[in-house]
């Protein structure tokens, strides 16, 4: 009897070991490191209590990058939640060659971020195609320095994040769309509902579970944005495109302040945790409401 009770956990064990080794153990260690002055070379770091946190809260740059991270979140997440819905509706049509378009939209997702970053960097360049096109369209008189002036750099990078992420969330929505029964649309058509009203009153409400998942995933992804910044701007000019993860990376691997970087990492963890909790409780309520 007892043996039966433990059998399922035995099957969970391999997963637990992997999670423990690569997620939970490093996480606990980071929390410990954030209380020390560890610099990767000395073998026995000194315990410094909450010094790293105190320093962090007094660092103007930390607050600046935190603000920019939140800005990133506020702009990128709506883009990643709503644009892919329309993309998914577009590629959900039964027309010839549709699988080509589906793969084409998905292509950026599987392309290496470094390649994407460099390609976009060229497009954004002073003599790049973007400035060229805007110029012949008469929108601008002289080239815009997208990545090299403080007012536009972070927004230029956001565009790349959205562009690269869209295909991935599109696939999630596509699965959701295909689960919506056709008779609902049929009924709506008989009632004379326009295409737009069908989207608002059938598609969006029935996609709600997918929208929830995409919101959580894209918020967490936006909090952790790093590669595009590293490749495209290096956080510059004047740290105007730096975000929290990039800041952590700089502290850890350029300045070798592992303890300090871990402290910033713990803060990032707490922020992400709060987001996840809000999202999950919201989702549970919704589910209960639906069941009830």
């Amino acid at each position: 009897m007892n043996r039966l009770k433990f059998t399922p956990y035995l099957f969970l064990l391999p997963g637990c070991i992997i999670l423990g080794a690569f997620i939970f153990y490093p996480m606990l260690q980071a929390i410990w490191l954030s209380l020390t002055d560890y610099n990767m070379v000395q073998q026995n770091p000194n315990f410094v209590g909450f010094d790293n946190y105190v320093r962090l809260f007094q660092d103007d740059l930390f607050w600046k990058v935190l603000g920019q991270t939140i800005l990133y979140l506020v702009i990128v997440v709506p883009g990643l939640v709503f644009l892919p819905i329309f993309l998914a509706i577009l590629v959900n049509q039964q027309i010839k060659g549709i699988s080509f378009f589906r793969s084409a939209y998905y292509l950026p997702v599987v392309t290496s971020m470094v390649v994407v970053g460099i390609a976009w960097k060229w497009m954004y360049a002073e003599q790049g195609i973007l400035n060229y096109v805007l110029d012949i369209m008469g929108v601008i008189d002289e080239p815009v320095h997208w990545l090299t002036q403080t007012s536009t750099a972070i927004f230029a990078v956001m565009v790349v994040t959205v562009w690269k992420g869209m295909g991935y969330y599109m696939v999630i929505y596509l699965a959701g769309l295909q689960a919506i029964p056709d008779d609902l649309y049929e009924a709506a058509r008989i009632d004379g509902a326009s295409k737009w009203r069908q989207i608002i009153h059938i598609t969006i409400p029935l996609l709600m579970p997918s929208i929830m998942i995409v919101s959580i995933m894209s918020s967490i992804a936006a909090m952790k944005v790093f590669e595009e910044i590293y490749v495209m701007t290096g956080g510059g000019p004047l740290n105007s495109s730096s975000t929290l993860v990039f800041y952590i990376y700089e502290q850890a691997f350029d300045n070798l302040e592992m303890g300090y970087a871990s402290a910033a990492g713990v803060i990032l963890f707490l922020i992400t945790l709060i987001f996840s909790i809000i999202n999950i409780t919201f989702m549970n309520k919704k589910e209960e409401a639906m069941k009830g």
């Binding site: 956990y9 969970l12 064990l13 637990c16 070991i17 999670l19 423990g20 080794a21 939970f24 153990y25 606990l28 073998q43």
Partner: peptide
């Protein structure tokens, strides 16, 4: 509860391993 205990055991085991290797 059981899940947390398993996690904790894994983590402790790993911590023990890392001590060993330095000796």
């Amino acid at each position: 509860k059981l899940f947390s205990i398993m996690m904790l055991v894994t983590v402790l085991l790993l911590a023990a391993c890392s001590e060993d290797s330095s000796n």
